[in-house]
Simulated assay, not measured.
Amino acid sequence: MSGSTGEIYRIDWLPGTDLLHGTCHCGREHTAQDPVEMWEWMLAHPRGHATGEPRGDG
């Protein structure tokens, strides 16, 4: 999904699990079972990205 400013948000389903893996446009990553939790995390940028959370490859 793309935001109004051109940022790209990516959410993938991890096959064989009930997990979703999201990557924010800033490169931060998050895993959750609940799609609502995942979107809330994505859309809370940067507030939802806790310090010390691993940064993705981009």
Score class of each variant (00 low, 15 high):
residue 10 R to L: 02
residue 8 I to V: 13
residue 10 R to I: 07
residue 38 M to A: 03
residue 6 G to P: 08
residue 23 T to R: 12
residue 31 T to G: 10
residue 57 D to N: 08
residue 24 C to S: 09
residue 3 G to R: 13
residue 1 M to G: 14
residue 41 W to L: 05
residue 18 D to Y: 00
residue 40 E to F: 12
residue 52 G to N: 03
residue 49 H to L: 03
residue 38 M to R: 03
residue 10 R to V: 01
residue 27 G to S: 12
residue 29 E to H: 04
residue 24 C to D: 04
residue 6 G to Q: 06
residue 26 C to F: 06
residue 21 H to G: 03
residue 19 L to K: 05
residue 43 L to V: 07
residue 23 T to C: 07
residue 1 M to P: 14
residue 43 L to D: 10
residue 32 A to Y: 03
residue 28 R to T: 03
residue 15 P to E: 00
residue 57 D to K: 12
residue 27 G to W: 06
residue 36 V to M: 08
residue 53 E to G: 11
residue 47 R to P: 04
residue 32 A to L: 04
residue 28 R to F: 02
residue 37 E to G: 15
residue 16 G to Q: 01
residue 58 G to H: 12
residue 55 R to L: 11
residue 46 P to C: 02
residue 6 G to K: 07
residue 57 D to W: 09
residue 19 L to A: 05
residue 13 W to A: 05
residue 34 D to M: 01
residue 44 A to E: 14
residue 56 G to I: 01
residue 23 T to Y: 01
residue 12 D to E: 09
residue 29 E to C: 06
residue 56 G to P: 07
residue 4 S to V: 09
residue 58 G to W: 15
residue 8 I to N: 03
residue 34 D to P: 02
residue 51 T to L: 13
residue 17 T to H: 01
residue 55 R to P: 06
residue 40 E to W: 12
residue 23 T to S: 09
residue 34 D to N: 13
residue 33 Q to A: 14
residue 22 G to Y: 01
residue 42 M to S: 12
residue 5 T to N: 14
residue 51 T to A: 15
residue 36 V to W: 07
residue 30 H to I: 09
residue 21 H to W: 01
residue 9 Y to D: 07
residue 7 E to A: 12
residue 42 M to L: 15
residue 23 T to A: 08
residue 2 S to K: 14
residue 13 W to E: 01
residue 31 T to D: 15
residue 36 V to A: 11
residue 46 P to Y: 01
residue 56 G to C: 05
residue 45 H to A: 09
residue 49 H to Q: 11
residue 22 G to L: 08
residue 35 P to V: 10
residue 38 M to E: 00
residue 41 W to M: 04
residue 25 H to C: 13
residue 21 H to E: 00
residue 36 V to T: 14
residue 38 M to P: 06
residue 50 A to T: 13
residue 16 G to M: 04
residue 15 P to D: 06
residue 56 G to D: 06
residue 20 L to R: 02
residue 51 T to Q: 13
